[in-house]
């Protein structure tokens, strides 16, 4: 025989922890309208969708919520959040679920990229000296092969440059020839720019891992380098 759910007796620890850390999430306001789910490309994957996930949180199904690998299928793209008439922050909920995963159980690829970034300043784990070598090598090749760019200047850690540019580490590491076109554009407009040698990469897998300690460390190191060592006015991300 079915019995009614006694709301007062539900144990909703996970919900409470999310509300505490992100008071703006307002999970209780859900009208179950499904606008989130209707416009979500991750709906139905692994038999889960945003509305269902939120229902499970509100019903105190904490074990299932904490374990669902759907938290890593959802990309936290925030389309659901934008559509929600009650402004419920589902991406933050998913982020909280990721954060609740033991670090060693989180997807290896994301964890590895976060670890590499903390250790080396980029998700590919390339030492800064190798990054600098690649940059100088590609620049030299362009200067030699293309008379229009015989004066092309590419620098790392040049003090007082106006712009500091972050680049996705896959570009210098796996497709260095993709660096040239951007440099040529910067050269053409006469931009005063440099790359940083510390935390030089544009990506951030610690954010995806919900590793706040790592994420904060990366940012602090980066900000310190820019403000104390370089003194740039503008930081530019290339993506």
């Amino acid at each position: 025989m079915t019995s009614p759910i006694e709301l007062d007796e539900l144990d909703c620890d996970f919900k409470e922890s999310v509300q505490e850390s992100t008071p703006e999430a307002n999970l209780d306001l859900c009208l179950t309208c499904g606008a989130c789910t209707g416009g979500c490309p991750a709906s139905e994957l692994l038999d889960m969708d945003p509305r269902k996930l939120l229902r499970m949180v509100l019903l105190g199904m904490d074990d299932e919520v904490r374990k669902t690998p759907w938290a890593w299928v959802c990309t936290m793209c925030a389309r659901c959040f934008k559509a929600c008439p009650m402004k419920i922050n589902i991406p933050k909920l998913v982020y909280s679920i990721r954060k609740s995963w033991p670090r060693d159980k989180a997807p290896k690829g994301i964890r590895g990229s976060c670890d590499q970034h903390i250790r080396t300043g980029n998700a590919m784990g390339v030492p800064s000296k190798d990054f600098i070598w690649v940059v100088e090598d590609v620049a030299e090749e362009i200067r030699e092969n293309d008379p229009k760019f015989k004066d092309l200047q590419v620098t790392v850690d040049r003090k007082e440059a106006h712009f500091v540019i972050n680049q996705n580490s896959r570009e210098p590491v796996t497709e260095p020839d993709e660096l040239g076109p951007l440099w040529k554009i910067l050269h053409t407009v006469g931009a005063d720019w440099t790359y940083p040698s510390v935390m030089w990469a544009g990506e951030n897998y610690c954010l995806f891992l919900a590793d706040e300690e790592g994420w904060k460390y990366i940012l602090e190191e980066f900000v310190y380098h820019i403000d104390n060592n370089l003194g740039a006015t503008v930081v530019v991300n290339t993506e």
Binding site: G39, R79, G109
Partner: peptide, 29 residues
């Protein structure tokens, strides 16, 4: 624009070790 569908590769999905779901997600794109 701001109402665009995510490609399915964001949020670390490219490295989440769930390629089947990532590609099903990406079918929309």
């Amino acid at each position: 624009g701001t109402n665009n569908f995510c490609c399915g590769g964001g949020g670390g999905a490219l490295q989440a070790g769930l390629p089947e779901q990532r590609r099903a997600y990406g079918k929309v794109k």
